[in-house]
Design a protein around this nucleic acid. Structure first.
Lengths: 260, 260
DNA sequence: CGTTGTGTTGACGTGTTTCAAACTACGTGG
DNA sequence: CCACGTAGTTTGAAACACGTCAACACAACG
């Protein structure tokens, strides 16, 4: 939830990508793999990565059951990942943006257990996993970074578990909007306004709420002057007050053993 | 949710532990690290592991903010892990039993972000993480296994996210009981009856329900003849019917894009 | 310019929480 | 070993937050 993402680079988006090698990739200070590598090591990483595959809006990057061979680094664009349960219902498990790594949940199975679908035209780098493992054995900094990325995914999911098991609709949506804001901010976009790439239904599926509840809560936030919504365009007028909503006290927690 | 755990070893529990080296550890076929190592490699792993630390019931293995140096393999016993939110409320994020690895969420932070508390007298093996990373660079099978364990943790958490965002109280509790049953079964205990190590409140915190709801739902299951509860002792009379409960159709899913 | 997907809003229903009271198991110390 | 206090559990009645169903509005797209 409170990912320590560097807020330092306000210009990574609108530049042109001169080359697409990792060593030239503007994302390397984000949570992408190459963080902290020496230039020599960059080139080793470059060599294993298949660069710049394009995925159009609505297309799948992978599907449930696909053989797992590669991780995917999201270069530009926006993805959702989702499970499909026996009865055919979709459950959105995440929204993913520039610099994030997709496919980590498939390593344990040798095939993918969720679908990844582009919510806007996107570009990804394919990282063959066995080659990455080989390289991790040669480059300790890469190994360390990869472990941190996996661990961070675990932390992120656990944060969402806490949200889902203890927050009401207002709190969930406020936390969701703040999370988007913070991630856009970290990528050089404005944290105060942005386009929602997903539908109300997808937000609801992700937050464990119905789409009507999302719509109503957005309307309420707007009436309260917290935000302004028009279709998918969102303006956050008061980040501090949104934050305060997420911190409201509830009682859906385990009692006992409240040692300090 | 549907972890492919080997059901093959019905005798791992009641034997004595002659030595406690990894190579002699009865857990090595479970999801503990050494799966698939050669005997020579076992000894390398043995050398870095500090064996058989005892944690009494109610004691912490680690706390929020503790510096992260080691992972912990649970040798015998039972743990819960929990977050504490700003307002001091506890949120149980997991229950952990024999053969599982604790502390994976701390790798990304260099300190622990949750508390791990023993729910019964337990024994753990401490695995210094930097030594493990070094060894992973030397032993590909160990590296592969470690990556699978981390990925499996991600899958597990995502399964719980789906549960929390789309299931009602009956379904959550049925899924929870089946999960316990399956994990006890995989460890050579009976999948049909066992002791609950945790309180109703802790189950509720984990499942996003109040303790009263857990109590009521257990009572209802008992009236229906599905289970028998007496305090913490639980008998599952009809696993198939429990399973069917978890598969009931709901509508808390994203609409649209239902391509096959 | 209609069609389809998406969003909004209202009225109503219901599953879960809240609050409260009583009961049971458990551990400690006398 | 019993008495006591504490922690945990059960059950009921009432309140409420969110879901359900339905009607309509709007936008995007071919």
């Amino acid at each position: 939830m409170q990912q320590k993402v560097h807020q330092l680079f306000a210009d990574i988006i609108d530049v042109h990508y001169p080359k697409s090698a990792c060593s030239a990739c503007d994302l390397r200070d984000l949570w992408c793999l190459p963080i902290g590598l020496k230039s020599e090591e960059f080139h080793q990483l470059d060599n294993i990565i298949n660069r710049r595959k394009r995925i159009k809006r609505g297309e799948h990057l992978y599907r449930v059951g696909d053989v797992f061979r590669s991780l995917y680094a999201l270069r530009t664009g926006f993805f959702k990942t989702l499970f499909i349960s026996e009865n055919g219902q979709e459950h959105v498990t995440g929204f993913h943006m520039t610099g994030e790594l997709l496919g980590l949940d498939a390593i344990c199975n040798d095939n993918h257990s969720c679908n990844a679908i582009a919510l806007e035209d996107s570009e990804i780098c394919e990282i063959p996993f066995s080659a990455l493992e080989n390289l991790c054995r040669e480059i300790p900094a890469l190994q360390k970074q990869f472990h941190k990325i996996m661990s961070r995914e675990i932390s992120r999911d656990q944060g969402l578990m806490v949200l889902l098991s203890s927050m009401n609709a207002d709190e969930r949506l406020a936390a969701f909007l703040l999370n988007l804001s913070q991630r856009f901010g970290a990528r050089g976009y404005s944290p105060h306004q942005f386009q929602l790439r997903m539908t109300r239904g997808e937000i609801g599926s992700y937050l464990g709420l119905k789409l009507e509840t999302i719509s109503r809560t957005l309307s309420k936030f707007q009436e309260d002057g917290l935000i302004s919504v028009q279709n998918k365009h969102l303006v956050l007028n008061d980040l501090a007050r949104l934050k305060r909503i997420t911190e409201r006290t509830h009682t859906n927690a385990a009692p006992g053993s409240a040692q300090t």
